[in-house]
Structures are given as structure tokens and as C-alpha cells.
């Protein structure tokens, strides 16, 4: 595809998509959003630019290959099990910590966030893998 409008719009749309990917990721778990949706949005950003420009340069410019994303995602998933084991709770039970942030209020983080990050990365990797496999035709 060779469309000037698409190529000009892509940088903005891409940053927007990645921004909202992170919003969805951090908002998730108890609210609509989460790792899966975030991951899809982030992958969409890359898919979008490979539609606007060519697939090959985009694929080459990726710093981490899709397989790497999947592997990192799996590592995060495995990490998310460890807090519950360290606190000798049930496996995969959520562990929550509250960090006071001064005037900003307080931040409530838990091991489900690690799980969501894992899903986020794995979904990016898998979606890109799907996309590049299916478009990689002579």
C-alpha cells in the first residue's frame, strides 16, 4: 500500500495507540482493560505502520523479535507466581502492596500487574508473529 495520507498520519496514530495500550494495561485487572487488550493495541500500532510503509523495513527495525516478546511475557508470567509462593499463600493468589507517594496520594500495586504485563508482552509477540507469518508471502 502506498498512501501519502496514511503515511503522514501513521506516526500520530501509532503514538496514540501505544499510549492507550499502556493506559489499558495499567487500568486493567479490576476495571475494563488489562494485558490482553493493551497488548492488542500495542501490536496494532506496529501492524498499522507496516500497512502504511512496507512490512519488511518495519520488521527489520523491530528491536525485539516477536519470539523475544513472547519469551519475555512468559518470564513475567512465571515471575507473577513467585510473590504468592514467597508469602506462602495459595499459588497465584494476589499480593498487594501500598506505596505512599507523598502529595500524589498512594499507589496500590500487586502481583496481578506482573501477570498483566506478562500477558501484554506475550500478546504483542504472538500477534506480530501471526501477522508476519501470514503476510510473509512471495
Amino acid at each position: 500500500m502506498n498512501s501519502v495520507i496514511l503515511q503522514l498520519a501513521t506516526p500520530y496514530v501509532r503514538s496514540l495507540l501505544i499510549f492507550f495500550a499502556f493506559v489499558a494495561l495499567l487500568r486493567g485487572h479490576n476495571n475494563p482493560g488489562g494485558g490482553f487488550i493493551g497488548g492488542l493495541l500495542a501490536a496494532l500500532a506496529i501492524v498499522f505502520s507496516s500497512f502504511a510503509f512496507d512490512r519488511r523495513p518495519v520488521q527489520r527495525k523491530l528491536k525485539i523479535k516477536p519470539g523475544g516478546y513472547v519469551a519475555m511475557g512468559l518470564v513475567f508470567l512465571l515471575l507473577s507466581f513467585s510473590p504468592s509462593l514467597l508469602k506462602s499463600q495459595m499459588l497465584m493468589e494476589g499480593v498487594w502492596v501500598t506505596i505512599p507517594m507523598g502529595i500524589l496520594g498512594e499507589l496500590n500495586v500487586g502481583s496481578p500487574l506482573l501477570f498483566d504485563i506478562g500477558v501484554f508482552m506475550a500478546v504483542i509477540g504472538v500477534t506480530l508473529m501471526f501477522f508476519f507469518t501470514l503476510t510473509n508471502r512471495k
Binding site: V70, A71, L74, L78, L91
Partner: peptide, 21 residues
């Protein structure tokens, strides 16, 4: 009793190892 999950978790760990090897 996390040992019950070991038959599932251990192959999962191995998969990660094989990605690196």
C-alpha cells in the same frame, strides 16, 4: 500445597529454558 501444580509449572519452566537454548 504448591506441589500439586508442579507437573504443570515445571514443563512451563522448561519451555522458557528451550526458548533460550
Amino acid at each position: 500445597m504448591a506441589t500439586v501444580a508442579l507437573p504443570i509449572l515445571f514443563p512451563f519452566l522448561l519451555i522458557l529454558v528451550f526458548v533460550v537454548i
